[in-house]
């Protein structure tokens, strides 16, 4: 398997604080790689550093055989890599219509069959064309997240970075989106890097997963390890117990 994404010793610091502390991994072409870990452990920072939204101070990043550093990413990069943000409120401009939001990337990258693509993208995420001229502040949380996913898929990227893509969605729409993502991955041989705190979702979607804590990857295990409870980090065990629900007292 050739590597789609390779990271070596990546470091991101804010003032003195190390949000990412020497993180390394390789993700194969067509692989789906999960990331779990406690809040503030650096999961979003990692995806943001890959996509050029945060600058990394040390280490190397190579995507589809090309090396990148700092924050500079060319147009070609964004044809290859798209990101769905954890916070659909922040990532979609509230005063833009859905139509504008979907149109923009198509125009930037010089697509011509715009009508067809916008309608197909809305259809794919289960929103009818009735939503096309709504402003994003007129949508519910889940509807906004689906627009964000439509926008990422519309450019037909090779690598999708997904930051909690379904945590704002109800279970039925989550299932639809997960099926849609899997289908897209099969059809187009996409590579996924997916952050989620739902171990059920990670185990459903990913072949391998990394567990992060305080800016570091503490372990990388295959999906099977979750089922068989074969992992070494204490934090992974806590995650597994906590995913069973709330216990009073």
């Amino acid at each position: 398997m050739t590597s789609a994404l390779s990271i070596r010793d990546m470091v991101v610091t804010y003032d003195e604080f190390a949000a990412l502390d020497h993180v390394s991994f390789d993700i194969g072409t067509g692989e789906s790689f999960g990331i779990v870990g406690e809040s503030g452990s650096g999961k979003s920072t990692l995806l943001r550093a890959i996509s050029g939204l945060a600058s990394f101070d040390q280490g190397t990043l190579s995507v589809a055989g090309r090396s990148y550093s700092g924050r500079k990413r060319d147009k070609e990069f964004y044809r290859t890599v798209q990101m769905v943000f954890q916070d659909p409120y922040g990532s979609l401009h509230p005063r833009q219509t859905v139509d504008r939001l979907l149109l923009e990337p198509l125009v930037i990258h010089g697509f011509t069959d715009i009508e067809t693509r916008i309608n197909r993208a809305l259809d794919e995420v289960g929103l009818g064309s009735g939503f096309r001229f709504r402003y994003s502040h007129q949508l519910s949380g889940g509807q906004r997240q689906r627009i964000a996913i439509a926008r990422a898929l519309i450019l037909e990227p090779k690598i999708l970075l997904l930051d909690e893509p379904t945590s704002a969605l109800d279970a039925s729409i989550q299932a639809e989106i997960l099926n849609l993502l899997e289908q897209a991955r099969r059809d187009r041989n996409l590579t996924f890097v997916m952050v989620s705190h739902d171990l059920g979702v990670i185990s459903h979607m990913c072949e391998r997963l990394a567990v992060m804590k305080t800016g570091k990857v503490v372990e990388t295990v295959p999906r099977k390890a979750l089922e068989n409870r074969e992992f070494s980090a204490e934090y992974t065990r806590q995650l597994l117990v906590a995913s069973e629900g709330f216990r009073r007292g």
Binding site: A171, S172, E176, N179, L199, S203
Partner: peptide, 23 residues
């Protein structure tokens, strides 16, 4: 049926349902 459908479409560790059931 909506609630029942919701309960049925959760992915869980170990269950291997591809695609997930949808409503």
């Amino acid at each position: 049926p909506y609630t029942r459908g919701l309960l049925n479409c959760l992915p869980t560790i170990g269950s291997d349902r591809h695609p997930l059931p949808v409503l």
